[in-house]
Design a binder for these strands. Sequence first.
DNA 1: GCGACAG
DNA 2: ATCTTGTCGC
Length: 225
Amino acid sequence: MRAHFEEGWQVPRHAAIARQIMLSGLVGPRPLEGWRMAAGLAFVFSRDGQRCWAAGVVADRQGNYVRQVIDAAPVPVSYTAGLLAYAVGPAVQQVLNQIDEPPDVLLCLGHGLAHPRRCGLACHIGLIYDIPTIGCAQRLLIGEHKPVGPDPGAGEPVADNGEVIGAALRTQCGANPIIVSIGHNLDLSSAIAVVLSSVVESRWPEPLRCARQLARQARAGCEDQ
DNA sequence: GCGACAG
DNA sequence: ATCTTGTCGC
């Protein structure tokens, strides 16, 4: 599967878009059987957007962290909506390459299938490493959904032109829903189950919240951003 | 005026 | 940390 990424992340916009369209056909939804280790992957940008800090954490089902990796890399292609993967790709890969034992499922910041070309960051990562991935985003990039009920666990499908591409999921009382979509190698109901079982007291699944915090700390430790 | 299109 | 309002840009 890595064959499709040999050109790396620094490719022209049209090439990245073409690659996303091709990759979207490779995304495999399927039930996730039992899982033990869940990981979170998050990142932050420098103020000028030219550098990216990424962090990955692996946790067992009880929430004990067994691995933490933080790294930084230049941004090869400045972020634009729809091409997040190409901005964070190098930093993210540096992090994931240091995690020897792949987790059973990876929660990624950003979208998976809920993407204009059905190929968000979580899909890229799932395909590269051939692991189940879930996209968790703060807000919609494409599609729409009905209002979500107030209780934690309530959700509504996110649809684009009648196609269900994800779910808006209430994870906490009083917090806006997060947008969950599959990345690769699992189905939407499995993804929702993993997210809900990983939420403790934040709007975000715990590994994701932890990873984002680490990435922000790493950025804060650098004098010039 | 109207929308802000993932981070 | 999140939400909401305001502001900026198109």
